[in-house]
């Protein structure tokens, strides 16, 4: 016989208290077992009350969505910015949770069948150790210096992103509620880019301001990236040039300066 929702509800409440009791007493094993039981009871409850399972979200080709957004930006970018750009300019939904495993999947694919895809989504490389930079995605077909980030790159790339977004907005005439927060996200943090009113972000002014600040940093940034890229070409193999060096290789890259 199926348990009634009321009785399930009571059992759930009881189990919750039991989990907390177990945790308070430091009994993690019991807590884990109780949690599993709790989850099962909750599933039954949801089936009993709501019937049927969750509707399946439509799977869109994530790597293509990311590729679009990254191509627009032209510089290494974090998932959050990629999602924001996607939401502003492209249709369909891109959940940031789906970006987390992306890089690993790409690396696996490359290792099993190198260069079988027209492009791969990889991590940017850090200029010092040529190791994968956490949370920054790039496209494999970009020139190596673009895929490397040095100390000045976070700011330079932020400004470049702003310029690219502003240009795209002007070119396509895009606007409206989806684009405004993205423009504002840049304008609020670039001197001279924000208008007199809060949230007033004019793409033309953004373009001018971002270009002006980028001018200040670009020399040092480009030089550091170029040097690091030279090093990478000398020291790293194909896979590593795309997906980054491990620590041993990283130590080599630093000429054994690490313990």
């Amino acid at each position: 016989m199926r348990e009634s929702p009321e009785s399930l509800e009571q059992r759930i409440a009881g189990l919750r208290s039991a989990v907390r009791r177990a945790l308070a007493g430091g009994d993690r094993t019991a807590a884990r077992a109780l949690r599993a039981e709790l989850r099962a009871a909750e599933d039954s409850w949801e089936r009993a009350v709501l019937g049927g399972g969750d509707p399946k979200p439509v799977l869109l080709p994530v790597r293509e969505q990311v590729h679009h957004a990254l191509s627009l930006l032209g510089v290494p970018a974090a998932p959050k910015l990629i999602v924001a750009v996607h939401d502003a300019f492209f249709s369909g939904e891109l959940a940031s949770s789906r970006l987390t495993s992306l890089r690993r999947d790409e690396e696996r694919s490359f290792r099993s069948a190198p260069y079988s895809r027209p492009y791969y989504l990889c991590a940017a490389l850090t200029a010092d150790l040529l190791a994968p930079a956490r949370g920054l995605l790039v496209i494999s077909t970009w020139p190596l210096p673009t895929r490397i980030v040095g100390p000045y790159s976070p700011r330079a790339d932020f400004l470049t992103s702003a310029i690219r977004v502003a240009e795209h907005t002007l070119r396509t005439g895009a606007g409206g509620d989806a684009v405004r927060p993205l423009l504002w996200r840049f304008a609020a943090n670039i001197p001279g880019a924000a208008g007199d009113h809060p949230h007033d972000a004019d793409p033309r002014r953004l373009l001018t301001a971002a270009t002006a600040e980028l001018e200040v940093h670009t020399g040092k940034d480009t030089e550091q990236r170029r040097q690091a890229a030279d090093r990478a070409r000398r020291q790293l193999g194909d896979v590593e040039q795309l997906f980054g060096a491990r620590l041993a290789a990283a130590a080599r890259a630093q000429n054994g300066r690490l313990p």
């Binding site: 919750r16 989990v19 907390r20 945790l23 308070a24 909750e42 949801e46 709501l50 969750d54 509707p55």
Partner: peptide, 21 residues
């Protein structure tokens, strides 16, 4: 303890809920 063991799953269930019912 209430936050982690009761409130969090309940808020998540609310967020996940696909329809009005």
């Amino acid at each position: 303890g209430f936050d982690n063991e009761e409130l969090a799953p309940l808020l998540a269930a609310y967020d996940r809920a696909p329809a009005d019912q």
